[in-house]
Nucleic acid binder design. Structure first.
Lengths: 254, 254
DNA sequence: GTAGTCAGATTGTCCGGACATACAGATTGA
DNA sequence: TCAATCTGTATGTCCGGACAATCTGACTAC
């Protein structure tokens, strides 16, 4: 008895709007992604060949391929020559992003609070100057913040920003995250180099985070670059490891 | 006086070999990447338009675009409509990979040594079974290793693998990394979900790593998936933070 | 002198087709 | 019965062209 396997995309109500300014391949990839997220396309199921899919939608094969490729890049689909394209069957959800502590907390429903400790211009130290690519002793913004969740201190964040990029309003810093401020100022975040480690808390650090001297702290240093490759932020953060850990979803470069 | 700006790719001796089985777009992207790495293409320099580049190489524009796009995805190039494609001018080097401690150490010239403490089949605990997607109490490989550099303990690695994937030879485990073993067994690593945190060392952990009880430890948990989405490895690692920290290069998803 | 407008340049999107390559299953042979 | 071969199918690669969207810089008008 032949397998009753049918192309699952047939049931899907796929359609594209040619009058929309949204690219056709993007419309398609969004619909496919939604179907995967929603469970309509079950993990492991084959997607049906590109040619036929293109014909059914009235698109060309390159356009369909572009849509599928974007989902492959996100890790949602797997293509196999001679076999077909199938939905990855795993817990894999989102790839990974430039994680923002504020967004992370908000997504977890923690309603984060921020207390700005310092917000001023200071001369750049050698370390800061090297990270940001500015001259030593030139002015840079220094922002120190304490991030709280449920009234408990969670992390101490010390950031440096080159001058002239955005105006750092203390009130805004207390109600939103730094990355959101930068994005809304028209800065396109592109990549970041970061280092995660651990060390014992100094007395000063312990006091800030309501820990004891010598308690383990999770540390993170990060330099963020915009789409032109300029450094736009350098930060040194310390987290209470009982309250926070870093979660990543890595994709292997191929 | 007009700008003496010239297309820097002209000086480059770009060429493709049509008799090679290596795809043309890949040949081109490799040559461009090498030129960027080598400094021949300086950061910020414009790449010259795609049409002319395609004509000079005897390629079509889609092929050239595919080559350029792969470097954009790696974060080495930036395209701007109406302007052109230019080399990112920053310290950005490699994107990020599924980091392997063994490879990291070897790249740092540390000549890592490994001591296999345990290598046997055990029934899967609830935690391991959930991570690997196998039935509870079914057999899984358990591998415990101590990683040393310069004779000093550096990390304690505890890994679980589903049975039947590879044969875990203790001698091989002591001379190479787990990921290399998996790759050479034909497993295509695809993605991983990992969590990085910190905690105080228990007496047992401290003993293994030549630290003191209560000393801060860097911890990492990871589930690795192959290209079909099956979990192929689950690991719980502890690192000495004075000897090791995690370095990432993140790209923002667009 | 300043602001708005226009033209050129370059990438973004999309099409239709062609052939190569690799995998899975059926067929054929020993 | 088992292994080697063949065949169909699906993706991988590549081509040549067309038009749209956007940015830069120069020109024009006020």
């Amino acid at each position: 008895m032949p397998k009753p396997e049918v192309d699952p995309t047939v049931q899907l109500e796929l359609s594209v709007d040619r009058s929309s300014p949204v690219p056709l391949y993007f419309q398609l990839s969004q619909q496919l992604e939604a179907a995967i997220e929603h469970g309509t396309l079950t993990p492991g199921s084959l997607l049906g060949n590109e040619i036929e899919l293109a014909a059914r939608l009235g698109l060309s094969r390159p356009t369909v391929r572009q849509a599928i490729q974007s989902l492959v890049d996100k890790g949602l689909l797997v293509r196999r020559r001679g076999v077909g394209t199938q939905v990855v069957h795993s817990q894999v959800k989102r790839p990974l992003e430039l994680s923002s502590l504020y967004d992370d907390l908000e997504a977890a429903g923690q309603r984060p609070a921020t207390k700005v400790l310092v917000n001023k211009l200071v001369p750049a130290s050698a370390e800061v100057a090297a990270a940001l690519g500015v001259a030593e002793d030139s002015d840079v913004h220094r922002v120190e913040r304490l991030r709280l969740a449920h009234g408990e201190p969670m992390a101490y964040l010390c950031n440096f920003l080159p001058p002239g990029l955005i105006d750092l309003d203390t009130d805004q810093l207390e109600t939103t995250g730094l990355y959101r401020l930068m994005r809304s100022a028209g800065i396109t975040l592109h990549s970041a180099r970061q280092s995660i480690g651990a060390r014992a808390a100094t007395t000063e650090e312990a006091e800030r985070l309501a820990e004891e001297t010598g308690a383990p702290l999770l540390t993170m240093q990060r330099v963020t670059f915009d789409d032109t490759g300029r450094a736009v932020e350098y930060g040194t953060h310390t987290y209470r490891p009982t309250r926070y850990s870093f979660e990543f979803q890595l994709l292997v470069r191929t």
